[in-house]
């Protein structure tokens, strides 16, 4: 049985599932990198994603086109980001409190809208929520391994990986990215160089809001055609974790997001073997803690030598 399990773990089907499932995490966290670089202490990723998921479903429902659905989701993320920015940057609210309130309110808001608009509680399934159709590429069909891996995914999955590369290019190869990172690492210096700190904070926030909305729209439009209460189930926090561990670097963040996606795929793949899925889902978190510890060991200065700069 062990061999069978191992075979399943490294099978192309598992990897393909991982590539698919990590798509919302990648889209969200690459956008979130721009927000993380300007260091505003935003934790509200879960809210943006859940509201994005709802409006993705709603947009597709009323228009019959998944692309419009995604656009509506992006718009919802944009509006939420506007309110967030107004509260935090202009009215000086505590970012953490606003974030937590956002996260808690998102659940209430989406469930209320579910009741008001569709008059159901819990879950809404309807064929009128049109999902993205899968892209079938002929030239991949002849290659056996790559076919299962890359073929027959929806548009957003391919977009996610392009998005990660574009994110890396913008962050590290353009003047805009340089200024953004400058604003994050030392706002005073950026200010004295004539860069408007507030403007860059707004830009970072809005990029994050729109990407999280798009990421949220993946969930109802990836083939299931449904919206359920608390649909994202902590995926926003996974985005946040991968951003924090990747330190706002789009490519590193993508790798961490892939790890989470792979673990997510494992829980699906291994469920046929009657194995404890909780342990499997726990593994990426433990792995991330281990990675953090490995990186942190360099900072160890001996038990006695703890002074102010440690903390």
């Amino acid at each position: 049985m062990l061999i069978e399990v191992l075979k399943t773990i490294i099978s192309p089907v598992a990897f393909a599932a991982a590539l698919r499932l990590s798509c919302p995490l990648i889209i969200g966290s690459v956008g979130g990198c721009f927000n993380e670089k300007i260091s505003t202490g935003n934790l509200a990723y879960e809210c943006f994603m859940l509201v994005g998921a709802f409006f993705g479903a709603y947009g597709s429902f009323i228009s019959g086109s998944p692309v419009i659905g995604s656009l509506v989701a992006v718009l919802s993320g944009f509006v939420l980001a506007l309110i967030y920015g107004l509260l935090v940057y202009h009215l000086n609210c505590n970012a953490m409190i606003v974030s937590i309130a956002y996260n808690n309110a998102a659940w209430a808001l989406t469930t209320l809208l579910l009741v008001v608009i569709w008059n159901t509680r819990g879950q809404f399934t309807d064929p009128r929520i049109v999902s993205y159709s899968t892209l079938d590429m002929d030239f991949l069909k002849k290659v056996p391994f790559l076919d299962t891996l890359f073929n027959n995914n929806i548009l957003l999955v391919y977009l996610a990986y392009i998005y990660a590369i574009i994110g890396h290019i913008i962050m590290y190869m353009t003047p805009f990215g340089l200024r953004l990172r400058g604003v994050g690492s030392y706002p005073m210096a950026a200010q004295s160089a004539g860069i408007s700190v507030r403007k860059y904070r707004w830009i970072g926030l809005i990029i994050m809001g729109c990407s999280m909305g798009l990421a949220g729209s993946y969930m109802p439009l990836s083939g299931m055609s449904l919206f359920s209460e608390n649909m994202t189930r902590g995926r926003g926090f996974l985005c946040l974790t991968s951003i924090l561990v990747g330190k706002g670097d789009p490519l590193k963040t993508t790798v961490i997001a892939l790890l989470f996606g792979y673990a997510n795929a494992m829980t699906l793949v291994l469920s046929t073997f009657n194995l404890p899925t909780q342990i499997v889902s726990m593994l990426p978190y433990v792995a991330v803690l281990a990675v953090l510890l490995m990186v942190g060991i360099r900072n160890y200065k001996g038990a006695k030598n703890i002074t102010g700069d440690t903390i």
């Binding site: 924090l244 953090l292 942190g296 060991i297 160890y300 440690t310 903390i311």
Partner: peptide
């Protein structure tokens, strides 16, 4: 305390 890893993430 020992490895300077922010408790925010952990």
């Amino acid at each position: 305390l020992f490895f300077r890893i922010n408790e925010y993430i952990t």
